[in-house]
Design a protein around this nucleic acid. Structure first.
Length: 466
DNA sequence: TTTTGAGTTGTTCGA
DNA sequence: GTCGAACAACTCAAA
């Protein structure tokens, strides 16, 4: 056996609980921690500058962690199909990597495996996506039975988490290309494994107990905000699930138990949509259910631009879209409201919204993002019935009752009185002047009438669903 | 193979 | 203001 192995890093920017790194280190081998910067991904039309910047800074953090253990990160520009086999040949090294589910990754890995000894290991999800199947061998397409089957499999506990090695030696003399610098919105999500662990610990102590209801409230920080870290594997899915299970076991009140259960459920949704993409890769291009590809989308470019910019005249929708631009992240409830508005009020193809979010989300994950959009559009697995159309005003009143979320992201509405905060266009002229918010000038009137838009969508969907 | 119960996240209407 | 029913059937999972 060669004395060197390659740990090919993709979505596992961590040292702890890392099956690929663990396998590479077996038998005391030196390890080449390799990251290939692939222009096909960096320049893809679904790439996001914010996500790339988060990843690049995450690589810098990983490099520092490796150097503290006698190693270093090796970065190469190029295509893995060339870079990985070349390096493997030079060092006579086996290659270990965490298996991914996207069609791009699977095709790439199949190609690499032609010319390099590639070993794919689990870790993206707790249970490998092809493992959970119905009795007849076909994959689940409904969440609840999937989650039952998922929970029925052996679940990890703390002793299953792989430890970090003290020494991760890298052979001398390896060239590493410089990690590019991309401007990053600094505040919201400092990258790195240590930060991910801190946040997980904080959430388990301070947030998970109230997660059950708090996660839906737009004006609270009730979500875990761990998604960017899960996206790049700075936190492993297994670490998150262990934390959820432990929190559930330690819960002293029904509310706390409910909170832990709710978070575990969200993590299982992540596993579900990973499995859906694995088994049904066509969902990235088309509706899961083909009949919905016939919906006559209006695809009005002016309205799409208004949605992207947060200028629809529906405050909660606009706050959501501005939060996305400002943070590279959006509250989960806000994602549903904004998505429902695009698809069912504007009747714009869900793929347009899916792409826009991928272009801006730090946590943008093809499987979860696609699953969420197809759910909202009613075109996917276990999707919302098409007649379930969010009322943006009602949603705002319910989940942001005092307008704190709206005012945080829409400064032009700061002085609008509470009673108008969800419907600013109903202010009389005098109130507009007092609030320093003229409708049509400082803030738009609604670009569609919700009631009419709802009827329009119901008939469009009805026409294709029979 | 057939049957039966069930299915993330809502809204509107009318009593 | 609050409540239950209707929305519109359909597909899936499992017995």
């Amino acid at each position: 056996m060669s004395s060197t192995a390659i740990w090919w890093i993709r979505r596992d920017l961590r040292l702890a609980d890392n099956p690929a790194l663990h396998a590479a280190l077996a038998d005391g081998r030196a390890v080449i921690p390799l990251f290939v910067l692939d222009d096909r991904l960096l320049m893809s039309d679904k790439a996001a500058p914010q996500r790339t910047a988060f990843m690049l800074d995450g690589l810098r953090a990983l490099d520092a962690d490796l150097r503290a253990r006698g190693g270093q990160l090796v970065v190469r520009y190029g295509q893995p199909e060339q870079v990985v086999p070349q390096l493997a040949a030079i060092y006579d090294a086996d290659v270990y990597a965490q298996e991914d589910v996207s069609p791009f990754s699977r095709k790439r890995d199949t190609a690499v495996a032609q010319t390099a000894p590639l070993h794919l290991l689990p870790g993206l999800t707790v249970h490998p996506p092809d493992l959970i199947r119905k009795a007849d061998g076909t994959p689940y397409v409904v969440f609840t039975p999937f989650s039952r089957a998922w929970k029925a499999l052996p679940l990890p506990d703390r002793t299953d988490l792989l430890p970090v090695s003290d020494r991760i030696p890298t052979p001398d003399g390896l060239r590493s290309d410089p990690i590019p610098i991309e401007p990053r919105l600094t505040a919201p999500f400092p990258p790195g494994e240590a930060e991910a662990q801190r946040r997980l610990a904080d959430f388990v102590v301070g947030g998970i107990g109230a997660y059950g209801n708090g996660r839906n409230q737009l004006d609270l920080n009730g979500t875990s905000q761990l998604s960017p870290y899960l996206r790049f594997g700075m936190l492993s899915a297994r670490q998150a699930v262990v934390a959820a299970l432990e929190a559930r076991a330690a819960a002293s009140t029904p509310t706390a138990q409910k909170g832990a259960d709710a978070w575990l459920n969200e993590l299982i949704w992540r596993e579900f949509y990973s499995a859906v993409l694995y088994h049904f890769p066509h969902v990235l291009a088309r509706s899961f259910r083909p009949k919905y590809d016939a919906i006559p989308w209006r695809n009005d470019r002016v309205e799409f631009a208004a949605w992207c910019a947060g200028q629809t005249g529906y405050p909660v929708v606009d706050a959501a879209m501005r939060q996305l631009l400002a943070m590279g992240w959006m509250h989960n409830r806000a994602r549903m409201i904004a998505a429902s508005f695009l698809v069912k009020d504007l009747l714009i193809d869900w793929r347009w919204g899916e792409k826009w979010l991928m272009q801006h989300l730090v946590d943008g994950d093809p499987a979860a993002n696609n699953g969420g959009w197809q759910w909202t559009a009613g075109t996917g697995t276990d999707a919302a019935p098409y007649f379930r159309i969010f009322n943006p005003t009602t949603q705002g009143k319910k989940f942001d009752p005092n307008g704190h979320y709206i005012r945080r992201w829409l400064p032009e509405l700061v002085l609008v009185p509470d009673r108008y905060i969800h419907e600013p266009h109903k202010m009389e002229t005098a109130v507009q002047q007092t609030a320093n918010c003229l409708i049509g000038k400082d803030y738009p009137a609604p670009i569609v009438d919700h009631r009419a838009a709802r009827e329009r969508t119901l008939s469009a969907y009805k026409a294709v669903s029979t």
